[in-house]
């Protein structure tokens, strides 16, 4: 089964201010974007499940058509850069999304 990393050109995470981390999954073209949306590969529920967090921690979930992107944002448990924060910039939180399964696209 194809992975999200095969369909997307960008999968990234980054701080959105001091208290949140935002994730961008950007697709190369509209067909891949539409297919991932249609298959509901990424929803509030699947994101919460992949990150093992309660859905309430997801502050925003947006399908952003102009950039063929799915974007979601989570609340941090502690503000960025507090002692013990392993990722002050929030820049390495996206890795679990690389390997998410996507159903084969119809030809």
């Amino acid at each position: 089964m194809p992975k999200l990393t095969d369909m997307a050109k960008t999968i990234r995470s980054k701080n959105a201010g001091t208290d949140k981390i935002t994730f961008d999954i950007i697709f190369r073209a509209q067909p891949q974007y539409d297919w991932v949306k249609e298959c509901k590969v990424l929803t509030r529920q699947t994101v919460a499940s992949i990150l093992n967090i309660a859905e309430e921690r997801i502050s925003d979930f947006v399908e952003y058509d102009p950039a063929y992107a799915i974007k979601f944002t989570i609340h941090r448990l502690k503000p960025s850069g507090s002692a013990g924060d392993g990722d002050i910039f929030g820049a390495q939180q996206y890795a679990p999304f690389l390997e998410v399964d996507v159903p084969e696209m119809p030809k």
Binding site: K14, A16, T22, D24, V62, Y64, P66, T73
Partner: peptide
């Protein structure tokens, strides 16, 4: 793609 994509960089809402 790059300009529209940048609109969502580092913010929780792209709009």
């Amino acid at each position: 793609a790059s300009v529209a994509g940048h609109a969502m960089y580092e913010r929780s809402n792209p709009y």
